[in-house]
Simulated scan of single mutants.
Amino acid sequence: MNYFGLNHKRNNISRDSLLLEIYTMNLPLYDLTLIVPTFNRQSFALRNMRYWSGRDIVMHVMDGTKLGLTPLQLAQLDDNIHYHHMPELSIGERLNEAIDLIETPYVTFLSDDEFFIPSALSSCISQLKADDELVSCMGLSIQFEYKNGNVIGRRFYQSLENYSLLQTDALERMLAHMDPYVMSSMNSVVRSVVWKRSMRLLCIGDLSTFNIGELLFELAVCFQGKTKVISEIMWLRSYENKIIIDHAKTKSFFIWWRSDDKSEDRSKLLSCISSILTKTSNEREMVKSFMLLALNRYVNTYDKIIIGKDFFNDIIVKIWLLIPNNIKNILRLVLKPFIKFNTTNLILLVAKEWSHEGVKTNFIELCEIEKVIQYFYKVEK
């Protein structure tokens, strides 16, 4: 593939600078399985499958769409891509099925319209191999979309920078993870034995009522061991499709968690979680108490952050709307040395700017993904 087919001169990024910053092409990922659920977005899932086809990674796509991909569409994919059409199963049930498909030491989870930079995945595996106490490792993220013929983006989940849970005590890790909460394991490279136990929590049927499957997965991972985020761009978070967040369900969790008449239901949930994560009765009681303390911390912290954040943002937005545009531009220039404005730009320039702060990026692999996205919109879609 021509990795330099784009006009990098246009992006102020020379071919030589790209070559200087690449580490190693096609690092082996034989030890990693990639799990990708999809539903009614088969064109994006197919884009993802084509990208990973022929690479040294195992990929399982769990499709809940009514009509599956055709044999002709699948015929062009190499043997490392495994497509499972399961229209009768919910996403939780499909992920539960995926657990039994994993045979590699490490596994990671990705949405159907998103990308990982392969060399960053390899960096995470290297971290896990070097430290037996580490169970999860991930890199930093850029959010992207396709607009006016360009792939543009901005830094995403900046709270991941320098984030780690390296406390020796499991409870300390869990409490630290909830105060404040940072999603740092869901899209990380995880040891398979840890991922399988944690994913079974996300698949518990009753949890769909509250949108807390992700939260319990995160808690389960850090209960089982240490986690860290490396200073390398790994996850390209798509903004191409509408993100559905059911705030009503999330809010209902807080109401349910605090209701006096739901104590028995909460106890049943905690018992279910502990039975998945541990074996002996003593361990189960410990997990129940840890989960109870961690979820209480999450609920209390969430209240303080959201109430304060909403109040502060409301004031700032109202003031900002009253300021003329020419004054806004001057303020941006004056405040730039003191405030990091997370502006949208060409995705390569976003990565380049981040690299000046010491964040590693495999620019050749990033360019390849940019070309895949552009081709998708100009030719395939």
Rank of each mutant, 00 (worst) to 15 (best):
E357L: 14
N2H: 08
L29E: 04
T301K: 10
I245D: 12
S17R: 05
I305T: 10
G5S: 15
Y146V: 01
I323A: 12
V299F: 04
G225V: 06
N342R: 14
N2F: 01
S274A: 15
R197A: 13
V107I: 02
S238N: 05
I91K: 05
M291F: 15
V287A: 13
L171N: 06
I230G: 02
T38R: 05
D31V: 05
A130M: 09
L292V: 00
S198K: 05
N329L: 14
S14W: 10
Y163P: 00
V135E: 06
K262N: 15
M25W: 07
L27H: 05
K279V: 12
L333S: 14
K378C: 08
L128H: 10
S136E: 11
L270G: 07
L110M: 13
H247S: 09
S198Q: 05
L29C: 01
L207I: 09
E218L: 02
I152R: 08
N187P: 00
G225N: 04
F376R: 13
I307L: 11
I152V: 10
P105H: 01
L293W: 03
I364D: 09
D78H: 15
N187W: 14
V350E: 13
F290T: 01
V194F: 03
I307M: 01
K242I: 13
G68K: 02
L202G: 00
N40S: 12
N96R: 11
S275R: 13
C367T: 13
I35Y: 12
I22L: 10
R297V: 09
E368K: 11
N96T: 07
E103R: 11
L34P: 09
M199D: 03
S185H: 11
Q143W: 02
D314K: 14
L219G: 06
K129Q: 14
T301Y: 01
L277E: 09
N362W: 04
G64K: 08
K66N: 01
C137R: 05
Q158S: 09
L140D: 11
L166K: 13
L295H: 08
N313Y: 12
H84S: 01
S122Q: 14
I339P: 07
N345V: 00
L32F: 02
D16I: 12
V229A: 04
E365M: 09
K304Y: 10
N326C: 10
K129E: 14
V287R: 10
